[in-house]
Nucleic acid binder design. Structure first.
Length: 727
DNA sequence: CAATGGGGTATTTTT
DNA sequence: TACCCCATTG
């Protein structure tokens, strides 16, 4: 047991060893929080607690998996329950759910299933999509379900919304489907309506741990309270300064008020930072100190001063991307592993330019999130077949695949199915199966529905596990053939995706002997973006939100501009609560960096619609003390390299804005490149100009390199110089 | 019944 | 600007 506690600080040891009663661990970034949690679990086990009496809730499946590994390694046993709230609720519901028409083979609807469902609902209510604000509905519905908004009624618009909400709920129940929030809502309902089940879990979970407690919402709070009420051995860890999910219903009061909920709670503060060098922590600390709604807490560096954070100014997003790629490439050639390098941004849309620049340089990268594998059309189509096989009431999935591949199911046929379903109280798929064997039904429709139900039925043959079943489904549907016909352009990619799906299924089968289709779907639908990410030998690109809990040697934060970070949302509002959350988000990003922090901003950034320029460097640069490093970007001309900034006076209130403007200007202009010029590129070596395009700011040159072939560069941005032919 | 084109509209973060 | 939906046409 002493071995477990070796190498822990006094405070960390306290957090590990106070196992009885409520405990709040306020843990700053890099303070060894994960280590504390896993050691605590191992410590409990080594003290004689049965692993099955321990419940540890984390924010992502990835975190849960990593913690499980570490616990098993140090405790030498398995069986402690480590999972996310959503996975836990889902798994427990599959054991006991029997409530208001829901049954245990329920389907989990993700965001896009939810949208499809809402589309159907609007159609049946005869409400226009635009009118109803379709894309904003899931958020509003979620806010009500997770307890961060009140169900409103009253004016006309809200009356519509109430109708939509009610119809949506009804549709979900009819489809035996739960959305993400329902997993928690229905679980809580089950606990409240079935005391014997509640009692079972209260008995079972003698020790409850909750990580990232600052990002729990009202529902999660209630679940925790319900489950831990009996033994009151509840340990929550978190950091109010890293609360970044209020828009998803996270209630920062859960952590701020922990002491009110549990007056007897012990509090341990972990402030030492073992991750980042002092220069980085200084910037991050300056920044977060600006938040008013905050409990005083410091970042105490353990490592040395290290490199100062760097600010890079760019002309536009392409320029910014280019400079990021340059920085990454020079670090990499200096021996830094790409797997220890990450680029963070506020919005997913920003990844495009960065991807392109990395692609141009041949720098490998992986993106967390964006258009994820399971969101691709062909994958969603095949998944819909699996979902129907598990839960025949799933109308959303039925509508998705009833005519994929095309089998002549038009509006007329669909109306017939819908009519039959409505009049018999069955789901659409159930009705379809009936019509398929109905002698009186039109032959064409019978044939189509026969094919459909046959394909679904083929999944019941489970030889070769999920992989075998999906393989046979693809065969039965002649799906590859369909893709070839329907998608002339990118059919090959799509077929490759299908192949990849099948091999992923086989892989899953190997890891889960005896696993069922339902198990597979369950796991797949609860996977988050980060869960699917693997640290490869490549630069990682992700949103600031996704970066929570990770760390890298080098971190680049792109788009440090007013409006983007802090982001002024769709309504442009920028009240202080929102700004404070944006500040925390930036703080989270900065504190992921171990040794090297680079922040970049672009002078010109077009919005999707008009062409409004943001153009102001983020206030966060000033607040973190990095403003003096800003180099002004000239309007007419981009500088080849960011110039070192002049050291400015401190950041007193006043005319800081002027401060930005009169920083260094661009360098002197070069002669334009001409076709035939011999040039040398900083990292790519010598080459020859074969073409030029545009002029002024948008001038580009195409350079032919002996080994690499043609590359296009923006003049003045690329580290490109003219050389003599004989050099 | 499918494909194509035009027009209109939405723009943050995600378990 | 880019995507998505719908209507029209083949």
């Amino acid at each position: 047991m002493d071995g477990l506690l070796a190498n822990l600080t006094e405070r960390q040891r306290e957090a590990v060893c106070c196992t009885e009663g409520p405990l709040l661990v306020v843990a700053g970034p890099g303070s060894g929080k994960t280590r504390v949690i896993t050691t605590r679990v191992a410590y409990l086990i080594s003290g004689g607690t049965a692993p099955s009496n321990i419940l540890c809730l984390t924010f992502t499946n990835k975190a849960a998996d990593e913690m499980r590994e570490r616990v098993e390694a140090s405790a030498g046993t398995r069986g402690a329950w480590l999972s996310t709230f959503h996975s836990m609720c889902s798994r427990l519901l599959r054991m006991d759910l029997d409530l208001e028409g829901y049954s245990r083979n329920f389907t989990i609807y993700d965001r896009s299933d939810q949208l499809s469902c809402l589309r159907n609902v609007l159609k049946s209510l005869n409400i226009d999509q635009g009118e109803a604000g379709l894309t904003r509905l899931p958020g509003r519905i979620s806010a009500i379900k997770n307890g961060s908004a009140n169900p409103v009624s009253g004016d006309e618009k809200n009356r519509d919304f109430s109708r939509i909400f009610a119809a949506y709920e009804k549709a979900l129940q009819a489809a035996n489907a739960l959305d993400f929030d329902d997993l928690l809502v229905v679980f809580l309902k089950m606990l409240k309506s079935r005391p014997e089940i509640l009692e079972k879990y209260r008995d079972r979970f003698r020790y409850v741990l909750v990580d990232e407690y600052q990002d729990t919402n009202r529902l999660q709070y209630e679940i925790v309270m319900q489950i831990s009420e009996k033994h009151r051995n509840i340990c929550v860890t978190g950091d109010p300064d890293q609360s970044i999910y209020s828009w998803r219903g996270a209630d920062i009061r859960n952590i701020l008020d922990f002491r009110k909920s549990f007056p007897e709670a012990r509090v341990v503060l972990l402030e030492q930072n073992f991750r980042s060098t002092a220069g980085i922590l200084k910037a991050a600390g300056n920044l977060i100190a600006r938040n008013r709604k905050r409990e005083e807490k410091s970042l105490i560096p353990v490592l040395g001063e290290g490199l100062a954070p760097r600010v890079v100014s760019a002309f536009d997003p392409e320029d910014e991307a280019l400079r990021i790629a340059e920085a990454v490439s020079s670090l990499s050639s200096g021996g830094a592993p790409l797997s220890e390098t990450a680029v963070f941004y506020r919005t997913n849309a920003q990844s495009r330019a960065i991807e392109q620049a990395l692609l141009d340089r041949g720098i490998p990268y992986v993106i967390v999130g964006s258009v994820e594998f399971f969101q691709r059309r062909e994958i969603k189509d095949l998944s819909a077949y699996l979902k129907i096989a598990v839960n025949p009431k799933d109308d959303v999935s039925f509508l998705r695949i009833c005519n994929v591949p095309a089998r002549g199911m038009g509006d007329k046929a669909l109306d017939m199915v819908k009519g039959a379903a409505d009049s018999s109280g069955a789901s659409m798929f159930e009705a379809a199966v009936r019509i398929a064997s109905d002698q009186n039904a039109p032959p064409r429709i019978r044939k189509a529905l026969g094919e459909l139900s046959g394909a679904v039925a083929s999944l019941a043959d489970f030889r070769g596990g999920v992989g075998g079943a999906v393989g046979r489904l693809v065969e039965a549907l002649r799906y590859a053939e369909y893709l070839g016909k329907a998608f002339a352009e990118d059919a090959e990619d799509r077929v490759a995706n299908v192949t990849e799906l099948i091999s992923a299924c086989h892989e899953w089968d190997e890891k889960h002997p005896g696993g069922t289709l339902a198990d597979f779907l369950e796991e797949v639908s609860l996977l988050s973006d980060v869960d699917k990410w693997d640290r490869k030998d490549a630069v990682s690109l992700m949103t600031l939100h996704s970066s929570k809990g990770l760390e890298f040697d080098t971190v680049v934060i792109a788009g440090m501009e007013e409006g983007l970070l802090p982001h002024f949302g769709i309504d442009g509002a920028s009240d202080s609560d929102r700004i404070e959350e944006e500040r925390r988000l930036c703080f989270v990003g900065m504190t992921r960096a171990k040794r090297n922090l680079i922040v970049t901003w672009a002078k010109n950034r077009r919005t999707a619609r008009g062409d409004i320029d943001f153009g102001e460097p983020s206030r966060f640069l000033r607040e973190s003390g990095l403003a003096p490093l800003l180099a002004e970007v000239s309007e007419s001309r981009m500088t080849p390299y960011p110039s070192p900034g002049r050291a400015g006076p401190g950041t007193e209130e006043g005319d800081e804005d002027l401060e930005f403007r009169d920083s260094l200007a661009g360098e002197a202009e070069d002669e334009p490149f001409k076709t035939g010029d011999y040039v040398k590129h900083l990292s790519l070596g010598p080459g020859r100009v074969v073409a030029t395009k545009g002029f002024g700011c948008s001038a580009k040159v195409v350079v032919n390199f002996p080994r690499l072939g043609l590359k296009t560069f923006a003049v003045g941005l690329a580290p490109l110089i003219r050389v003599n032919p004989d050099e």
